[in-house]
Design a protein around this nucleic acid. Structure first.
Lengths: 139, 139
DNA sequence: CGGAATCCTAACCGATACTG
DNA sequence: CAGTATCGGTTAGGATTCCG
């Protein structure tokens, strides 16, 4: 019996509020700006709904998620791949072509990530106002 | 004219994909495990829907978000307060009583954070399976 | 093009001690 | 109880260089 099968039988109740819960580590990895942005980017590569989650190349992602270093993009994509959220496809052209695409699992999370990104954009002004108020009050 | 008024007139289009966009910094702060857990905790303090977002005391939060240090909890709560996501109320008892509660702004984000936390819990087993597969393949 | 490997600094963050 | 302040280790993550 594999470890996965043992877990399936165990029917563990995960609770990220508990420090030692495995889902806490997962939440940890997901609560990361690059993870959020990469998943959001892979989710809305196109405006057309039918191919909203088309595969993107490394350089394309790099441009879309402005400011991300090569190292962080690679690292982020590797962890997403390992966790089964994205697939990595290599085409042996010269030079090599690598494309990343959301899996079904990744798709189910990407909606939340896009919501989070949108929230930040939509409420930036509100937050600015509150900060000014807070800083004024403190001074 | 205040800076806030100027921004309101400017009707800026924020885009967190841009490195210099203010919303990127905000997304950065929000993409943090303690922020996620604290907002989630403040959001489902009770199981009853009518007071699902009741105020919580510092020590209560500290217990709920297991493993958080005083320092990080304080720091997280301060930033959330400054950004207008939570309110901090001090009652001058002996010893002092401090309670935190989500604002309307915080409430609007808390749903997303709870979704994220739930996702991590619900898909932990999927992720485990993928990791094993990935690690086996690599070995 | 899409990385891997190295170095190095800035920040995060936990532990501890002290306070009103 | 609910913090503040300080120290110090760990790590995140940028810059650079090299490679198939």
């Amino acid at each position: 019996m594999t470890a996965a099968q043992q877990r399936a039988l165990a029917k563990v109740e995960y609770d990220a509020f508990l420090a030692t819960c495995p889902s806490r580590q997962l939440l940890d990895r997901l609560s990361n700006k690059w993870v959020t942005l990469v998943l959001a980017a892979l989710g809305d590569a196109c405006s057309a709904p039918e191919d909203a989650a088309r595969p993107m190349r490394f350089s394309e992602l790099s441009r879309r998620v402005a400011g991300v270093s090569q190292k962080m993009l690679t690292q982020t994509l590797r962890s997403l791949e390992r966790d089964g959220l994205v697939t990595r496809t290599v085409v042996a052209t010269v030079p090599v072509t690598v494309s990343y695409e959301l899996t079904e699992l990744g798709l189910s999370l990407q909606e939340t990530m896009r919501t989070l990104k949108s929230w930040a954009q939509d409420h930036m002004d509100d937050v600015f106002t509150h900060r000014e108020d807070y800083d004024t009050r403190a001074a």
